[in-house]
Design a protein around this nucleic acid. Structure first.
Lengths: 110, 110
DNA sequence: ATCTTATGCATAAGAAAATTATGTATATAT
DNA sequence: ATATATACATAATTTTCTTATGCATAAGAT
């Protein structure tokens, strides 16, 4: 993913936000999109991604649709209604996290 | 700590920055300072704090000095030279993390 | 006097999340 | 032919945190 430990716990936020932005995506596409958007800074590994997608699906935040393209399997994921709500929560949590960390790191502005 | 998973991996950054700011602190003091600065948003638990302090010390980033105040034990931690360097790294990592996440979350500005 | 809360440390059991290593399979480029 | 890219998946291990527990002294409340 990255040599920085700070990304731990961020993968669900990333997945949900990307799906919110792009409607439906498949796993490999997500890894490439993240690599592309971050110019290689962040690489989501399969070992982290697929279990996360399965869990989000099990929690009812994602729906799956299987497709076959060029004789290869693709599993397209999209947000459910609850998934859309949870995306908003996750983005708020991220904003709060950043604000809190900046408070801790830059006490002058506290 | 917080109901948000985003703080995972952040505790070392927080500890190092606080010690960088306050020269020397003891464990309990760190928990109270964090609670105070974040207005209760973030509570560092002992189960997370003490193992983290011990690890940072084992890595040579912190030095310890034992004191007895009011007949109670205190272990004051301060940054070593390497600890000060690592603090700068961690703060840079945090800045990069925030920047990268904002890129992912707000693709309009990418 | 007794009990609770605060101060101060520590560790162990368990859960959660990621890394690393594999595994399968097809398509494309060299 | 061989390597790289596409596309999924899981298992073993490690990392990190939560929750629970333990010890001990001080201060405040009843």
């Amino acid at each position: 993913m990255s040599n920085s430990k700070l990304y731990k716990g961020s993968i669900n936020t990333i997945i949900l936000k990307l799906l919110n932005e792009h409607n439906k995506m498949y796993g490999y596409e997500i890894t490439q999109k993240v690599k592309d958007l971050t110019k290689g800074e962040l690489n989501i590994t399969e070992g982290a991604l697929y279990p996360a997608l399965h869990k989000l699906e099990a929690e009812g935040l994602l729906d799956v649709e299987i497709a076959k393209v060029d004789n290869r399997l693709r599993k397209y994921y999209k947000l459910t209604e609850n998934g859309t709500k949870e995306t908003a929560n996750k983005l708020e949590e991220l904003a709060d996290y950043i604000k809190t960390m900046q408070t801790l790191i830059n006490p002058k502005l506290a």
